[in-house]
Nucleic acid binder design. Sequence first.
DNA 1: GTCTATATATCGATAGAC
DNA 2: GTCTATCGATATATAGAC
Lengths: 231, 231
Amino acid sequence: MTTPDREPTAANQAPGRLPGSRGGRGRRGRYHHGDLRAALIDTTIELLSERGVHDFSMAEASRRLGVAVAAPYRHFADRDALLAAVAVRAAGLLGERIEREAGPGPAPQLLAAAARAYVRFAADQQPLFQALVGAGLDKTRYPEIEEAGRRSIQAFTSPAATLLPGDAAAAGRLASAVAATAHGHAVLLLDGAFGRGERAAEVAVGQAAAAALALADGRARLAAPGGTLQG
Amino acid sequence: MTTPDREPTAANQAPGRLPGSRGGRGRRGRYHHGDLRAALIDTTIELLSERGVHDFSMAEASRRLGVAVAAPYRHFADRDALLAAVAVRAAGLLGERIEREAGPGPAPQLLAAAARAYVRFAADQQPLFQALVGAGLDKTRYPEIEEAGRRSIQAFTSPAATLLPGDAAAAGRLASAVAATAHGHAVLLLDGAFGRGERAAEVAVGQAAAAALALADGRARLAAPGGTLQG
DNA sequence: GTCTATATATCGATAGAC
DNA sequence: GTCTATCGATATATAGAC
């Protein structure tokens, strides 16, 4: 479809020169297009939405942009580095979304809003969410991802601290429990466990928010460290 | 380490064939070793624990077993089919574990026990859990995985139905909320979000169980479909 | 400094011999 | 049922054109 190869002819000609190699034949994507780095990030997001992280490849991104397969390596050390750049963008957008949707309000509602925004983001921005959590990136190798995700994390820890002012450890447990619950709903939603389509997204979003409220109510349970197995 | 190739000799003998087929040149791992299919599954689990799903390859599994790279394709259509077979085994073991750890008891404790067993399984059997949820397998193409996971699902749905006897839909929401919560904790645990080592596993396991209890208590919230956003 | 051309190595997968 | 041989695609590294 895209990028038929047209002219294998002059493709490599004599390694010595390439007479009209570029200039004359303005075929297509002759672009030294100024910002290959940004273009790669955009194209990666496109590809993620079409084929998933699993099947994403540098070669395909290069092909779609009309550049040589080696070109991306001038900007990103490897495939993971490119995906990490996408993940950083995703983390930023997620943080913005959570902050936007959680206005002022009582702490339990803030936790619910954070959970809701988290799952909503996963549903609406699947490729970005995939890059953020589904690419299997080693976060220790890309600390900038966690850095970019700090605002999202605060949306959970801050209201939790309000609810449990005396006990920072307990507040941390409540925050991570709500975040893990939102995360679980988001992942299972993209996995199809809630069904397909917008209806499924609404179910997952609503359920995550309700679960967040229940956790906030039952915070005494999470306040007790360790086992907490006994009812 | 294990399984150096040295000719298990009588391993498969001649099933009516192979007079001296290989015999003469007993070079190395000549084993037609009878059950390559099972050996592949075992080796895959080994490799998953060493390098993760992402870096698993058929070629490496073949090399480790001393067979040609084409041999596995007699038993599995492709890489995903092999991983699916591992996922089926994982689902079976997960179901057994959940059933074992959840004896008789009150419904909320059963939900907590299911959540606890789920996260515990992820922590103790990382490679199997990876194959089950981290391999990006299309479950619609491998329905046997869901089939094998049915017992695990029942460990969540059954106590939820006990807690909300009148309303099957509400029970379903409670069950999936608890399952999603357990899943979120398991995934984040393997992602390192709770730290590393046994200590992290204990935190995640205990927290998931506590969250399950809180959800069971707050079941009225989850009983209301749709928004449930308002406190 | 950005990209092309090219080479190597590995992987997934298929065809055909034994 | 396994091996040999092979193909196509990919990741990655290097040298050189502009």
